[in-house]
Design a protein around this nucleic acid. Structure first.
Lengths: 317, 317
DNA sequence: CGTATTATTGTAAGTACTTACGTAAGTTAT
DNA sequence: ATAACTTACGTAAGTACTTACAATAATACG
């Protein structure tokens, strides 16, 4: 038990499960108290049917928030115990329309009475606490519907990672890293082309001298990302050589590099930033989209075979 | 979903379950986010072992509040994934001592980091709500440990039933009920004896005239319980002919009748109330005990074959 | 010292749901 | 009218635990 205390809310899911098991276990005792030949898990289905007979399996599932499969199974059991009966739908023969049998109808008043007692007891239980469990659950469900847990955790991690990621300006000492990171992904998805090697081996001559820029991203002592901005003409720069090592992908490093490059292009007075990519590279395209790039219709021919999509980001001065 | 709104807290268990499922489902997404080859359900076990290696299966189960069987299964899976290893205990060969493998140890820092992120995210999630779910769960768990749900529901029901149960003084119109209720249980557990029939057929002559009393309990328009007080001598009354119809048992009707009888005995100046019963009748003996009766050592011989236990309640004037 | 009891674990089966999938009935497009 | 699809349902299998039971080791008792 001390696990929960130590882990705190990390184990929220486990703890919810444990409490729900405790509750359902005790629910069985409650039925025993009333000596009803009835299992707790039947309650939602039975109750829904009793209140409004003639609903189909799917409708009941909708009402209680379970799957149709679960309802189907419970209904089967209820039929076995002669508490409900099913008929084919009149207009629609696919539907299984459920209604109470005489035995089920006879049970219903007692069950309602018991439900009222349970309700009063749980309401008293909830009222005992300073923090109302029922309302708290409602709030958490609502919050999770807005942003999933994964989304929230990602936000936390991104913030933590952001503090640890450094974007560095290019220097000759990074040429090897620059080449390694790009070769890594090009070789993984395509074939290295001569045009690649020229720029990767001599970034100074092919990128920086013509008025371009290169950045690298360092994370925990390793260089894990790279990105370049190549000058095409006075008003146009190309975002190229974007690479993040697989181990560091998903940490928002590409986005950070892209932001820096776009900011620099804007500072240099560019009217648009252009890029070429391949539709096979889903996550990369998504990143470009998030940076504001949109697909261009017609395009300049590319020196790279692998490029089958062109995007651009117009910059308003 | 409107089921929850309509049923309110009656469905507390179901709702807890649903929320916990939602949480565990999203937990899987979180692991995917970190690209860890790790399943959420392993977490408590793995974490416990990583923190303090060399614990046995039973000890881990104790720490995380699951059964040893669950831990055994998870450990088996973790072994299959080469994350932990098990050895026989040194002093005690029954114990399965669990520790991390090299691969498991390598995973641990990342997992810790992830856990810290999850914790921060869930804490922010909880902080968003006015009613703190974590604290509310703690309070409810505590409250349920004090009194189980069944106990609470029983209290509610007893109160409701008490208002509907009426204890009636005997009149000739109840002779048939008085006989029926007693014959019912005597015939069920034993054989009717001549002494029974005398008192049941002519309660006036055999119970009331000699200075005794008879009460009946009515519940929802039916007479469902009976009980008599027979005068043995100036200072001693016998509690007898206690009967509650099976359908109404467990509603505290016997206790109500017993209380009335004992109060009357006290009002009549009795020093003790005596009764005879049979050890086969467990619930009845429990009722007598709750009323304050205790087993007597030696006893007067009984006219009834079925009596093998005698109890008495001393009354201080 | 042998036997009865207790402790520790693993395995099987159950629980109350889920997801995945197949079948039959209905609906829409050609 | 036929093909292609969508919908409703039931069945099977999975999930993450549980309880029940069996096997083996340790300990207590006479």
């Amino acid at each position: 038990m001390d696990f929960f205390e130590q882990m705190g809310s990390t184990a929220l899911g486990s703890r919810l499960r444990r409490l729900s098991e405790q509750m359902t276990g005790q629910a069985a005792e409650v039925y025993a108290l009333y000596r009803l030949p009835f299992e707790p898990r039947w309650f939602p289905v039975f109750c829904t049917v009793a209140r409004q007979p003639g609903q189909s399996v799917g409708e009941v599932a909708q009402a209680i928030g379970h799957t149709h499969a679960a309802v189907s199974q419970v209904v089967k059991e209820l039929v076995r115990h002669d508490l409900v009966s099913i008929e084919r739908g009149e207009a629609d023969l696919r539907r299984s329309v459920v209604s109470l049998t005489a035995k089920g109808a006879a049970l219903w008043p007692t069950l309602q009475e018991q439900a009222a007692d349970v309700r009063q007891a749980t309401e008293a239980l909830l009222a005992e606490s300073r923090h109302n469990l029922w309302l708290a659950m409602g709030e958490v469900e609502h919050a999770l519907a807005q942003h999933s847990l994964a989304h929230r955790v990602k936000a936390v991690r991104d913030q933590r990672v952001a503090a640890e990621v450094q974007v560095l300006d290019y220097g000759p000492q990074y040429q090897a890293d620059f080449k390694r990171l790009n070769v890594e992904w090009i070789a993984r998805y395509f074939r290295l082309e001569p045009a690649d090697l020229k720029a990767l081996d001599e970034p100074d001559a092919y990128i920086l001298q013509p008025g371009g820029h290169i950045w690298l991203a360092a994370y925990r002592g390793a260089v894990v990302g790279a990105c370049a901005l190549i000058k095409l003409d006075t008003h146009t720069y190309e975002l190229a050589k974007m690479a993040v090592s697989p181990a560091a992908q998903g940490l928002g490093i590409g986005f950070r590099l892209g932001e820096v490059a776009v900011a620099q292009a804007r500072a240099l007075g560019a009217r648009r930033v252009y890029l070429e990519s391949n539709t096979k590279l889903g996550p990369a395209l998504q990143l470009y989209y998030k940076l504001g790039f949109r697909k261009t219709v017609a395009g300049t021919p590319s020196p790279y075979e692998r490029c089958n999509i062109q995007m651009e980001l117009p910059l308003t001065p």
